[in-house]
Lab assay of single mutants.
Amino acid sequence: MTSCHIAEEHIQKVAIFGGTHGNELTGVFLVKHWLENGAEIQRTGLEVKPFITNPRAVKKCTRYIDCDLNRIFDLENLGKKMSEDLPYEVRRAQEINHLFGPKDSEDSYDIIFDLHNTTSNMGCTLILEDSRNNFLIQMFHYIKTSLAPLPCYVYLIEHPSLKYATTRSIAKYPVGIEVGPQPQGVLRADILDQMRKMIKHALDFIHHFNEGKEFPPCAIEVYKIIEKVDYPRDENGEIAAIIHPNLQDQDWKPLHPGDPMFLTLDGKTIPLGGDCTVYPVFVNEAAYYEKKEAFAKTTKLTLNAKSIRCCLH
């Protein structure tokens, strides 16, 4: 018999989150649709729960009410004593943790798909938090293969000092899905179709896995975050240069030392320094102006996964 890495157990509980950011409308629209008619997301033997994560922000069509829901799922915020004085999103995070967690427990949901849009030209993107997770690498390989020839990129946010504390991190297997470009507060049919297909293929993978299909060893190309880059700023902290036209919409493309990065209003080009080629992502993302992030630098690498098969009882 072929030796293989056996994944822990079959997958039982899956959640699909929309509206973690209330103005990213593809996930909101799909989740609302699936709450009314969820036939397309159901798979035999699998509990799939669509869920609106930040209903107040969705109602106002804004990213958040008090603070970013997708950055506060750490033990400090989840452990705060519940009171009306807490920011709305912290209270909501505790409610979500109660419903789908608790985080880092045996009772937490197996998989959470968190649906997002970006204003950046990132196409279909899967966000991975753990480079050693054979199950998710296999799932992402399946999704990428199923979507081809449509490109699907994998963004690895594993980093020693950049801690995200994402909404989906309460699950055993957290999956971020990011599709763009799409303006905030807008629905685009092409973007919706791409996100819908990503979810379909992900659920198909889980179904095949649960039925005992063995997935042979595989490898995927990923883009691992190195650092986030702020806009150049003046002495008052105001933005002093904008994304250069040569960099705009060039997510995932190589940016070499000396290539144009920013452009000042008086026409001066600010190039990339250093001696390493990087791959920019979230270029000129609207939501990241407040976070002082013009783009993120990534490096390209390959992740390998062992063969996996479900432990059938």
Score class of each variant (00 low, 15 high):
residue 123 G to R: 05
residue 109 Y to N: 03
residue 35 L to K: 11
residue 185 G to W: 06
residue 192 L to P: 03
residue 23 N to I: 06
residue 247 L to N: 04
residue 28 V to Y: 15
residue 133 N to V: 00
residue 216 P to D: 08
residue 286 A to N: 07
residue 214 E to D: 08
residue 193 D to Y: 15
residue 175 V to R: 00
residue 281 V to S: 07
residue 191 I to G: 03
residue 253 K to V: 08
residue 109 Y to P: 07
residue 27 G to I: 03
residue 11 I to D: 04
residue 164 Y to E: 15
residue 285 E to C: 13
residue 202 A to V: 04
residue 137 I to Y: 06
residue 64 Y to Q: 13
residue 308 I to Y: 01
residue 206 I to P: 00
residue 170 I to K: 09
residue 313 H to W: 15
residue 82 M to D: 14
residue 142 Y to I: 04
residue 37 N to A: 08
residue 308 I to C: 00
residue 94 Q to N: 10
residue 254 P to G: 04
residue 160 P to I: 07
residue 291 K to E: 10
residue 259 D to H: 04
residue 299 T to F: 09
residue 212 G to S: 01
residue 32 K to T: 08
residue 123 G to A: 05
residue 160 P to A: 11
residue 164 Y to C: 14
residue 2 T to L: 09
residue 302 T to H: 08
residue 51 F to C: 10
residue 190 D to C: 06
residue 155 Y to E: 05
residue 237 G to M: 03
residue 199 I to V: 14
residue 176 G to P: 12
residue 203 L to V: 01
residue 277 T to A: 08
residue 267 G to A: 06
residue 71 R to G: 14
residue 74 D to V: 10
residue 203 L to H: 05
residue 295 F to R: 02
residue 180 G to K: 06
residue 198 M to R: 05
residue 120 S to N: 05
residue 100 F to Q: 04
residue 151 P to H: 07
residue 306 K to E: 14
residue 170 I to F: 09
residue 31 V to C: 15
residue 195 M to P: 04
residue 276 C to N: 13
residue 308 I to F: 02
residue 196 R to K: 10
residue 154 V to Q: 03
residue 287 A to F: 10
residue 307 S to R: 12
residue 260 P to T: 05
residue 57 A to G: 07
residue 210 N to P: 05
residue 180 G to R: 01
residue 251 D to F: 04
residue 153 Y to Q: 11
residue 16 I to K: 06
residue 112 I to C: 13
residue 260 P to N: 04
residue 61 C to R: 14
residue 301 L to C: 11
residue 178 E to M: 15
residue 27 G to W: 05
residue 109 Y to W: 11
residue 277 T to S: 08
residue 261 M to S: 02
residue 70 N to Y: 06
residue 116 H to R: 08
residue 260 P to G: 07
residue 299 T to M: 14
residue 300 K to C: 07
residue 260 P to V: 01
residue 194 Q to C: 11
residue 162 L to H: 15
residue 252 W to A: 00
residue 46 L to D: 03
residue 130 D to T: 02
residue 23 N to Y: 00
residue 89 E to H: 03
residue 195 M to A: 11
residue 312 L to D: 15
residue 220 I to N: 02
residue 117 N to K: 04
residue 56 R to M: 13
residue 245 P to I: 04
residue 275 D to I: 06
residue 5 H to R: 13
residue 311 C to H: 15
residue 38 G to I: 11
residue 293 E to H: 15
residue 300 K to S: 01
residue 146 S to P: 05
residue 10 H to S: 13
residue 11 I to R: 01
residue 42 Q to E: 13
residue 306 K to P: 14
residue 199 I to H: 03
residue 58 V to T: 12
residue 284 N to R: 05
residue 180 G to C: 00
residue 116 H to F: 09
residue 108 S to P: 12
residue 244 H to N: 04
residue 252 W to Y: 14
residue 155 Y to V: 15
residue 154 V to Y: 00
residue 256 H to I: 07
residue 173 Y to Q: 08
residue 16 I to F: 03
residue 212 G to F: 00
residue 108 S to I: 09
residue 50 P to S: 07
residue 7 A to R: 11
residue 279 Y to A: 03
residue 74 D to E: 12
residue 15 A to G: 15
residue 274 G to P: 01
residue 172 K to C: 01
residue 250 Q to W: 04
residue 275 D to M: 07
residue 27 G to M: 04
residue 41 I to K: 06
residue 154 V to P: 04
residue 259 D to R: 01
residue 93 A to N: 07
residue 226 I to N: 08
residue 225 I to R: 15
residue 36 E to R: 11
residue 183 P to V: 02
residue 70 N to M: 08
residue 85 D to N: 13
residue 148 A to V: 07
residue 168 R to C: 10
residue 70 N to S: 10
residue 298 T to K: 04
residue 265 L to V: 10
residue 56 R to F: 11
residue 234 D to P: 06
residue 93 A to P: 06
residue 170 I to T: 08
residue 3 S to H: 11
residue 266 D to R: 06
residue 191 I to N: 02
residue 159 H to W: 06
residue 20 T to M: 04
residue 11 I to P: 07
residue 84 E to R: 13
residue 174 P to G: 12
residue 263 L to N: 00
residue 56 R to K: 14
residue 104 D to Q: 12
residue 192 L to F: 09
residue 99 L to K: 11
residue 19 G to F: 03
residue 54 N to T: 00
residue 124 C to R: 03
residue 230 D to V: 09
residue 101 G to V: 04
residue 161 S to Q: 13
residue 156 L to F: 08
residue 162 L to P: 15
residue 303 L to E: 06
residue 302 T to G: 01
residue 51 F to Q: 03
residue 114 D to L: 00
residue 136 L to D: 04
residue 277 T to D: 08
residue 77 N to G: 12
residue 272 L to W: 10
residue 294 A to R: 05
residue 64 Y to F: 14
residue 178 E to Q: 15
residue 178 E to P: 02
residue 162 L to W: 12
residue 8 E to T: 12
residue 181 P to V: 02
residue 28 V to T: 15
residue 154 V to G: 04
residue 24 E to F: 01
residue 245 P to A: 01
residue 173 Y to H: 14
residue 248 Q to L: 13
residue 175 V to D: 00
residue 256 H to L: 08
residue 299 T to D: 07
residue 301 L to Q: 10
residue 13 K to N: 10
residue 177 I to T: 02
residue 12 Q to W: 01
residue 227 E to M: 00
residue 262 F to R: 05
residue 57 A to W: 04
residue 216 P to E: 09
residue 187 L to F: 03
residue 256 H to E: 11
residue 139 M to R: 05
residue 83 S to Y: 11
residue 200 K to Q: 11
residue 44 T to K: 14
residue 64 Y to S: 11
residue 86 L to A: 13
residue 268 K to V: 09
residue 26 T to C: 09
residue 13 K to T: 06
residue 8 E to N: 14
residue 105 S to A: 13
residue 85 D to M: 13
residue 224 K to S: 07
residue 294 A to P: 03
residue 84 E to L: 14
residue 25 L to A: 15
residue 91 R to W: 09
residue 260 P to Q: 02
residue 215 F to H: 00
residue 219 A to D: 14
residue 135 F to E: 03
residue 286 A to L: 05
residue 60 K to L: 10
residue 237 G to P: 04
residue 32 K to A: 06
residue 283 V to D: 05
residue 88 Y to N: 07
residue 95 E to Y: 10
residue 214 E to H: 09
residue 76 E to Y: 10
residue 256 H to N: 14
residue 277 T to V: 13
residue 175 V to N: 00
residue 216 P to I: 00
residue 212 G to A: 03
residue 263 L to K: 07
residue 174 P to F: 14
residue 32 K to M: 05
residue 221 E to R: 00
residue 42 Q to F: 11
residue 202 A to P: 05
residue 108 S to T: 13
residue 177 I to C: 01
residue 60 K to D: 13
residue 301 L to F: 10
residue 219 A to S: 15
residue 174 P to V: 14
residue 141 H to F: 02
residue 115 L to Q: 05
residue 189 A to S: 12
residue 285 E to Q: 08
residue 56 R to D: 13
residue 46 L to R: 04
residue 177 I to D: 03
residue 37 N to F: 07
residue 304 N to A: 12
residue 233 R to L: 14
residue 154 V to R: 04
residue 136 L to K: 04
